[in-house]
Each structure stands twice: as structure tokens, then as C-alpha cells.
């Protein structure tokens, strides 16, 4: 019997080594696997390269991992945000390396790794400083630059529901990088709101097939959904709205 579920988040991050490259899903806070990141901080791995679209928001999740001094290098498209003060401070102090990748190239390089593509030519970034030093080729009259895959030792992602085979469905735009990252890591770890019975996810609607997934752990469900239905009552950070009397 295949059972990829693990009992708790500490089990989900067992074995992550110092110096690892770790993909972390999410676009801003949407889809960020905060509980897994908290467990990673607790687990202690350091000297990490993190691949994620952003470089942390506020003081939780990826921002907390950065604040704990565990990250040597950040690979992302958009580190600078209104609430990225942790990263900003580290960067200005020269305590973190940064590689900026255009967002679509980031997604496609991750996808390429998962799909076994050796490299690909992308039109994005041609003639800009982000393509400096990269091999360029003109194909059918259009300029392209050579981009290599990005793979990882571990992917930490957040989905909505999963089963013991690792089949996953997501919720709305919290899907973002989850499916491509799941395919591009040696070990893919997923936090879900709910582990459901095998067979209860509609095969027509499975977004990430379990072949890409190694560990599934249930975490405290998002508070703005109840019994599968959106109930609201939270702010954009998922915090409960203050009750006005």
C-alpha cells in the first residue's frame, strides 16, 4: 500500500540537509506553505538556496526563514514588496545573495527541470541586463536567449486537498507555482487542508498527479473555507476581521 501521508509537519521536513536548494511555492502569501516553512526553521537546515517568486512577506513563513539566517541565496522574480522588510534588510547588509529571474522564465525553467528538458530558448529578457552573458539565437527572425532548468532537492508547496497517493487539487490563485515545483524537486512535500480518501478526488480534476509528490501532511485548514465553501470573514492575510459591535 502506498501512503505518502505523514503524521505531522516535523515528519514532513525530516532529512533536509544544510546547503540544499529548496523551492517554496506561493505568490506573495497566496499558496505559501507557512506551516512547512515553520517546521523547516525548527528542523534547522541552513545555508539554503531558496527558489520562490517573492522573498518573504511580513514576519511569517519565508520571511521568518530569512530572519533566522538560514538562507544564503535567493532566486526569485520580485523580492521587493511593501512588506519585504526582512529581505530588504539582509540584502542591504550584504548578508544574502540574489538572483533575479523574470517570472515566466522562472516558471518555465522549473517546468523544464520537471519535464526533463535540457535547456530552452526564451524570448523573455532578450536585450536586457538580465540576459547579459547568455547565449542568444535568432529563430524564425526572432531573438531568444538560452535558459537552463532550475531543479531542487526539496519543494515545499501548499495545496488544498490531497490523498495518500499524493494527488492534489489547489484553490484559486494559490495554485501558482505549486504544480511546476512539485515536478522539479527530488523530494516534494505538500501541506494540505485535508487528506481525503483515495478515490474521492475527481480524476478529471486532479491538478498534480501523485507521481510528483513524496510527502503529504494535513495542517490547520484555512479559516475562510468551511466544508469546501468560501465563508469569508478574513483580511487579505487570512486574519479574522475585527468584530465591530
Amino acid at each position: 500500500m502506498i501512503d505518502k501521508t505523514v503524521a505531522g509537519v516535523p515528519d514532513a521536513v525530516v532529512g533536509i540537509r544544510d546547503g540544499s536548494t529548496i523551492m517554496i511555492g506561493g505568490f506573495g502569501r497566496a499558496g505559501q506553505p507557512v506551516e512547512l516553512i515553520d517546521a523547516l526553521i525548527e528542523q534547522g537546515a541552513t545555508d539554503l538556496t531558496i527558489v520562490s517568486n517573492n522573498a518573504g512577506n511580513g514576519d511569517r513563513g519565508l520571511a521568518a526563514l530569512l530572519a533566522a539566517g538560514r538562507v544564503r541565496r535567493m532566486v526569485c522574480s520580485f523580492p521587493r514588496q511593501h512588506d519585504s522588510w526582512v529581505f530588504d534588510g539582509l540584502y542591504r547588509a550584504g548578508r544574502i545573495e540574489l538572483e533575479i529571474v523574470p517570472q515566466g522564465n522562472l516558471a518555465e525553467r522549473i517546468r523544464a527541470a520537471g519535464a526533463g528538458i535540457g535547456a530552452f530558448f526564451s524570448p523573455t529578457g532578450v536585450g536586457t541586463e538580465l540576459a547579459a552573458g547568455k547565449e542568444e539565437r535568432v529563430i524564425d527572425g526572432r531573438r531568444y536567449v538560452l535558459e537552463y532548468p532550475i531543479r531542487a532537492d526539496v519543494a515545499l508547496i501548499s495545496a488544498y486537498r490531497g490523498d495518500r497517493w499524493g494527488n492534489l487539487v489547489y484553490r484559486e490563485t494559490a495554485r501558482n507555482f505549486g504544480p511546476v515545483m512539485a515536478s522539479a524537486a527530488v523530494t516534494t512535500v505538500v501541506q494540505v487542508d485535508e487528506v481525503v480518501e483515495l478515490g474521492s478526488l475527481d480524476p478529471e480534476c486532479v491538478v498534480t498527479p501523485g507521481i510528483f509528490v513524496d510527502r503529504v501532511v494535513a495542517v490547520t485548514p484555512r479559516r475562510w473555507v468551511r466544508d469546501g465553501a468560501f465563508v469569508g470573514g478574513v483580511d487579505i492575510d487570512g486574519e479574522p476581521l475585527a468584530v465591530t459591535s
Binding site: 522574480s77 520580485f78 523580492p79 521587493r80 514588496q81 529581505f87 530588504d88 540584502y91 542591504r92 540574489l98 533575479i100 529571474v101 523574470p102 517570472q103 515566466g104 522564465n105 523573455t124 529578457g125 536586457t128 538580465l130
Partner: peptide, 11 residues
């Protein structure tokens, strides 16, 4: 000194 951030602009 500015922190570079490109997002999806180039794409």
C-alpha cells in the same frame, strides 16, 4: 542600492 525586482514585466 535599489533592490532589483522584475516580476512578470519582461514576459
Amino acid at each position: 542600492g535599489a533592490i532589483p525586482a522584475v516580476g512578470g514585466a519582461m514576459d
